[in-house]
Design a protein around this nucleic acid. Structure first.
Length: 498
RNA sequence: GGCGCGUUCGUUCAGCGGUUAGGACGCCGGCCUCUCACGCCGGAAACACGGGUUCGAGUCCCGUACGCGCUACCA
């Protein structure tokens, strides 16, 4: 009871941080913070051929983006090789491990043969019974060897916080390698040594490690070190029910960030993939997660990643965000578009209005810029042929748009309210439904048939802009007819301002 | 092949011996409405199969099937 929880996330920098790794990191983080413990990082960079600094940066950046703050300086596994060797030497000394002089090819042949005759028994090195003296002599003579663990005859079992007791018959476990022929420690050696030295109390990792665990438990026991608690979290599968791999599309966390996913949404979604608070909630803030997370809430079965649901969740979080936050997120892309000439200079103040009006109908921040181009620049053409055909067919439309512009011009104060009032009054005078004016006005002002409340748009756009666009469309309709002839599907429609 | 783990709507998460098997995403229909979203209301949709145990089983046990993982001198 006295010891505080210490958990670790141990990525190997041989690729970007993916959904699966991120989820494992999240569970570790949540468990640590929930129980007032520490969340540590260990970079497993001992595969020197495949490890890259660039991936390491990506992983750290992704964790930071999710807000998974780690405690203490991350431990680099490659810096601990001499410690790993020490551990293996101690094991050799105690007899828990032995030198195996069997050449690689021969060991493979033995295993192959065993597999062919049914594969009931695991690999047992013929050298496991060599006397210490013989073993030492051959080593001294310069004969190459690997160091293997001597699997005892007792079966192994361990407790898993997710699955309960997991047992494995000892005869199915290989005399696995602790130290390669070239003197480098293997994964099995490194994890146990590091977890033990780091004082890790709970090992929370992917279910693909379940079958490694008995070997590690045996190592802890041989070392007379305390065995940590294990929790193997279900794997995340792709839509094809195969384990999520780097192959299928945008799996890297940083790519989700680029696409405009909010870290809050990703955190919430990933937390509820394979874990549940026990009730029906599924939108969680970080604080709610920290409060509710328990290992007991983790599921056993693997889960399929559903991007559609993530997207929905993103939209949920989007509409809850303060406008300033969204503006902030958009700033860079907004500046880029201005530089690229896609958005006119001086339209910065419109961004706030676009965000405010559009955020509840956007799934991603970028949608606000894409769907809301008309906030910043006059529509150049009517892209929406269907809407044009349906809403601009009345021959009276050009005159009405013109007249509406004139009425707006006379308004002393122009805002959401007064623009609506004036339009409805005019519609009443004409004895037509307000829709007869609303739809053409929407097309005039935005160039598209769908969007936010018209009057919210008018208010945001301001009198001058609205009048200009109304008159532009009126002129265009007089020139191109009602409904306007917009040409073929595959050619661009004519410009509004010729 | 061997060993391990798993199996509730298409997906996800509830259910922890007695429920009309619930919520969410997606899908379909309706309401709201100036359109599109949002929101609200409603609908279709699941306990892999077979044996037990029990008065009673989605819930406990065993088997089968299927899926996934591991089976490296990778991590």
């Amino acid at each position: 009871m006295s010891e505080t929880v210490r958990v670790r996330f141990a990525p190997s920098p041989t690729g970007y941080l993916h959904i699966g790794g991120a989820r494992t990191a999240i569970f570790n983080y949540l468990y640590a913070r929930h129980s007032g413990g520490r969340f540590l990082l260990r970079i497993e960079d001992t595969d020197r051929r495949r490890s890259r600094r660039e991936y390491e940066q990506d992983i750290l950046a992704a964790l930071a983006w999710l807000g998974l703050e780690w405690d203490e300086e991350p431990l680099r596994q490659s810096a601990r090789i001499s410690r790993h060797r020490e551990m293996v030497d101690a094991l050799l000394e105690s007899g828990a491990a032995f030198r195996c002089f069997v050449p690689l090819e021969k060991a493979e042949r033995i295993k192959q043969a065993e597999m062919e005759r049914g594969g009931i028994n695991a690999f047992r090195s013929p050298d496991r019974e060599l006397s210490a003296k013989q073993s030492q002599a051959r080593a001294d003579a310069g004969e190459p060897f690997a160091i293997r663990f001597r699997i005892p005859t007792l079966d192994v079992s361990f407790h898993d916080a997710v699955r309960g007791t997991v047992s494995t018959p000892a005869h199915t476990i290989d005399d696995f390698i602790l130290m390669r022929r070239d003197g480098s420690p293997t994964y099995m050696t490194a994890v146990v040594c590091d977890d033990s030295d780091m004082g890790i109390t709970h090992v929370i990792r992917g279910a693909d490690h379940i079958t490694n665990t008995p070997k590690q438990v045996l190592l802890y026991q041989a070392l007379a070190a305390p065995v940590p608690e294990f929790a193997h979290v279900p794997l995340i599968l792709g839509p094809d029910r195969k384990r999520l791999s780097k192959r299928h599309g945008a799996q890297a966390l940083t790519e989700y960030r680029e696409q405009g996913y909010l870290p809050e949404a990703v955190l919430s979604y990933l937390s509820t993939l394979g874990w549940s608070s026990g009730d029906d909630r599924e939108l969680f803030t970080r604080d709610q997660l920290l409060e509710n997370f328990t290992l007991a809430g983790i599921n056993k079965a693997s889960a399929v990643f559903d991007e559609q649901k993530l997207e929905w969740m993103n939209a949920q979080f989007m509409s809850q965000q303060p406008d300033e936050r969204l503006q902030q997120m958009l700033r860079r892309e907004f500046a880029r578009r201005i530089m690229a000439g896609e958005i006119p200079h001086g339209t910065g103040p419109m961004l706030a209005k676009a965000v405010n009006v559009l955020k509840t109908r956007a799934h991603f921040p970028i949608d606000i810029l894409d769907k809301g181009r008309y906030f910043f620049t006059d529509p150049e053409l009517i892209e929406d042929r269907k809407a044009a055909k349906k809403r601009l067919k009345d021959p009276a439309t050009p005159d009405r748009l013109e007249e509406l512009a004139n009425r707006y011009e006379k308004l002393s104060g122009f805002d959401e309210h007064s623009s609506e009032q004036a339009l409805r009054e005019y519609a009443d005078e004409l004895e037509v439904g307000a829709g007869k004016l609303i739809h053409p006005t929407r097309l005039a002002v935005s160039g598209v048939g769908s969007g936010p409340s018209l009057f919210a748009m008018l208010g945001a756009l301001g009198k001058e802009t609205v009048m200009r666009r109304l008159r532009t469309l009126a002129r265009f309709l007089r020139e191109h007819g009602t409904p306007p002839d917009l040409g073929d599907e595959d050619t661009d429609p004519p410009k509004l301002t010729a």
